[in-house]
Amino acid sequence: MFTSLRSKFALLFLAFIAVPALLGVIGMGALRAVNDPATEVREVWLPKLRMLAALNDHLSDFRLAEGDFLAATDEEERAAQAVLIARLGGDIAATIAEYRVAQLAESDAKEAQTFDQFILAWAAYREIATRLMAQALSLDRQAARQLYRTENQQAYARASDLLDALTAADIEAAEASRDQANSVYDDTSMRFVVIIVGVVGLAVLAMAMVNRTISSPLIQLVGVLTRIARREIDLTRAAHRAARRDWRDCPRH
């Protein structure tokens, strides 16, 4: 099978067509496999981490604004801080709603539970902040400061800790998606290396076949023709010797 020159070259030709086609199929599959976790990182985890970072900033600013509200020395400054606190509260509520939409797209029960706990902690903290501002406005500054340093501080720490836990969980999930993409990329790279080695092997085999079946016989033929042209070979004598040899080999009756 595949003993003729035509069959061998046909087989090599088919191999050189099949290998690039195989590379293309593997390449498309690899791109899809790498793109899926990369898309998840880009479209899911990075936006969620951005929201959590915004929540963390707003929460810290809210706490600072409370302190500035207590330290205000006149009504104008206190009113400005009250406006800032209200705006930060609205920003936190909007970011929570935005994160809720992104979180519902995922099916991580642990993350959902932590997020629900954060919402409750934020609500408790906001309620204490409202009481604190009411006490400050009623000129009960000492009680307001005591509330700020105790119950209010504890509520803030609780909400902040839950926010940190959410951030750590999302970072871990994003890193897992990144590691998956890297693993797929490494596996695909190894496959391409193996295929490239195979292509090089086919090329070497083709060169050896061409050399054996075409180049070497042609070189030998050119050498013979050159010797004939230089009269190094007498075709008449060679023909006579061949005829006598054939005559001797003929059976006699």
Rank of each mutant, 00 (worst) to 15 (best):
F2T: 11
R6W: 10
K8M: 04
F13H: 12
I17D: 03
I17M: 03
I17A: 02
I17Y: 03
A18P: 02
I26N: 12
M28G: 11
A33I: 10
V41Y: 02
W45N: 05
P47C: 02
A54S: 13
L55P: 00
L59E: 06
F62T: 10
T73G: 11
D74G: 01
D74E: 02
E76T: 14
E77Y: 01
R78M: 02
I85N: 11
A86H: 12
G90Q: 12
T95G: 04
A97Q: 05
Y99K: 01
A102H: 11
A102C: 03
L104I: 10
A105E: 14
D108N: 02
A112L: 01
F115D: 00
D116P: 02
I119Y: 00
A121V: 01
A121H: 03
L132S: 07
A134R: 15
S138I: 07
D140I: 01
A143H: 10
A143V: 11
A144M: 01
R145Q: 14
L147I: 04
Y148L: 06
Q153Y: 11
A157C: 06
A165G: 03
T167Q: 08
A168T: 06
D170M: 13
A173D: 09
A176G: 00
V184E: 13
Y185H: 12
D186R: 13
S189W: 08
F192K: 04
I195D: 05
A208Q: 09
M209R: 11
P217A: 07
I219T: 15
Q220H: 12
Q220T: 12
G223F: 03
R227I: 00
I228H: 07
E232C: 07
I233A: 00
R237F: 07
H240G: 05
R245G: 06
W247F: 14
